[in-house]
Design a protein around this nucleic acid. Structure first.
Lengths: 319, 319
DNA sequence: CATATATATACTCGAAATGAGTATTAATTG
DNA sequence: CAATTAATACTCATTTCGAGTATATATATG
């Protein structure tokens, strides 16, 4: 096997927590460059699996005990790993870098030196619909995307673009399409990374805070995956304290999904599924009626075959 | 960056089709070694992205035009890439191999030299519940797993094992847990790969046909992903002819899911979702009433924000 | 203490989706 | 034409969902 087929592997982690109703992600922030996800090399001589490599260096660099982790995607795109400038990109002596992205959930919230927690909506301001449909969608995004459609090289391409715009930002907000939306904005030149990767000067609106390399894409993948998973696996609880009120739980889900939910129905759902059990203790709120403190019933992880989803009816009798 | 952090990347593909009500997968089969998934190196000098690398060598080696492709997972486990014997494992001069698995769907069914289509239930006979709950579950698997639970080093471990057995093979078959089940059988020593990887002689029952390296694990991942995706994305159509009857469509879904469905409700579902449209033409069956031929409405891929799934009720008014 | 405010929790109700049928129609084979 | 095979239409009870209303229990304040 020739030298050209050799690459180095980087492990990037989107480490997520929820703090005072904001989803936050751990980033390495320097004054002179864009925020980055924590990134460590995979060392095949010492790491038995990719995930153990990840846990090892995250454990060394931060003091986190990563609870839930999940592999997201492996990116190997040429040209999307360009640094902002200078020779910061020469991470590996010019070798091609393939990065394996991970999502990690934690409830420990004490950052290591050089890192800090930042709200993920800094990077994706159009994704937070909790208060209202973000104004920037109508004032900035849709006009710019309309132009993107008009500038298509031919009518067929324009039609494709129109459909993508419609799926991403049209009728019926699908909160899971985080990556699709980011990629659309990238291609339309509405995020800074696009111009950076192309070696151009940025012109026009640059939406959200940019990140190093393709880290914003990895983070978009992480958010999308987490929003999807919320619906059929009890992953929120990885982000909660051992006991919590139902409203706190709801606020955490809302923060991640970027949507508001119906309170009464949320409780019904949670209760019906047997995901939590009351502790008999109560919260001591500043005002208002105290709420019962609940805890996650870890047993359900094993009990239930699979919450949610169905594929039409399974047949029981001949038919 | 030292030499030890350098690895080579392999791209493996589970290329899936459906033929006469059987899901089949393209394998490289030799007399003297286990079946393997098609596998090609990623060449960073010539491939812009991982997926374009995959498409390139698959296109060269087979004549397939991969329609739908999806990255599955990246495996880097030491010890799960051990060959059956001899020096076949020295694929890359001793360098560590990280393999990126892909799922690809195709409807073209003409194998290239050296490859052949094999029914995927050869590798996972316990996954096909279309006729009935496979007898081997009760006659072989559950007794062996009971022993696995009993042989646990301590009671805590035994409890964990019992719960895993219950989730995988207990009440309420969840057809998506293909990977979990394979991993459980692996750890319990019920598949040949376990003994091979440990350098032991295989003893006791060896379930299903083994594959080279960790390819059966990749295939399990592919099946699990596909079974899940079926429910919320119209991927089956990638496997169908341009026109098909509703029963043919149902049989394809059933083949993949390994389950029987309720005919009348299946049609209702497909019709309601506007996934297909009638062509006005009819099939010419050997016997029985001819069925209308339908075609997939490609438009829905763009029209619908997201079929299926929900996260509880989105709030519309204050609540 | 009465009242405003904030929150928790219980209960209702119609609409839609789901699971499991029965009934009827349209073709072919012997 | 009866038997067989399959397509397609229609029914119906049950469950789930979305959106409320109603009531209970706190604190803070005048």
């Amino acid at each position: 096997m020739s030298k050209e087929t050799v690459v180095s592997i980087g492990l990037s982690a989107a480490i997520v927590a929820v703090e005072s109703e904001q989803p936050v992600v751990l980033v390495v922030a320097h004054d002179d460059s864009d925020d980055a996800l924590p990134f460590g090399p995979f060392d095949p001589a010492h790491h038995r699996t990719l995930e153990s490599g990840l846990r090892k260096w995250v454990g060394e660099q931060t003091r986190f005990d990563l609870g839930y982790t999940e592999q997201l995607y492996t990116f190997g795109d040429k040209g999307r790993h360009t640094p902002a400038g200078g020779d910061k990109g020469r991470q590996s002596g010019g070798a091609r870098v393939v990065s394996v992205g991970y999502l990690a959930l934690t409830r420990r919230v004490k950052e290591a030196p050089e890192t800090q927690w930042r709200g993920w909506y800094n990077y994706f301001p159009w994704e937070d619909w909790r208060d209202a449909r973000p104004a920037m969608i109508d004032s900035v995004i849709l006009p710019a995307l309309k132009k993107f459609v008009k500038d298509a090289p031919n009518t067929e391409s324009a039609e494709l673009r129109r459909e993508r715009v419609n799926v991403c930002f049209g009728e019926g907000w699908d909160e899971e399409r985080v990556l699709e939306r980011y990629e659309l904005l990238y291609e339309a030149g509405l995020v800074e990374e696009f111009h950076r990767d192309a070696g151009q000067l940025s012109r026009g609106p640059a939406l959200g805070t940019p990140m190093l390399f393709d880290h914003r894409r990895i983070l978009a993948t992480a958010i999308a995956r987490l929003r999807g998973k919320l619906k059929y696996r009890p992953v929120v609880f990885e982000l909660m304290s051992p006991t919590f009120t139902l409203l706190e739980l709801q606020r955490a889900v809302e923060a991640l999904a970027g949507l508001r939910l119906h309170k009464q129905n949320f409780r019904r759902l949670v209760a019906e599924q047997g995901l939590v059990e009351g502790t008999g203790k109560f919260s001591a709120p500043a005002r208002g009626r105290p709420a019962e403190l609940f805890r996650f019933r870890r047993e359900v992880l094993r009990e239930r075959p699979a919450p949610g989803l169905r594929l039409g009816s399974r047949r029981t009798k001949a038919g």
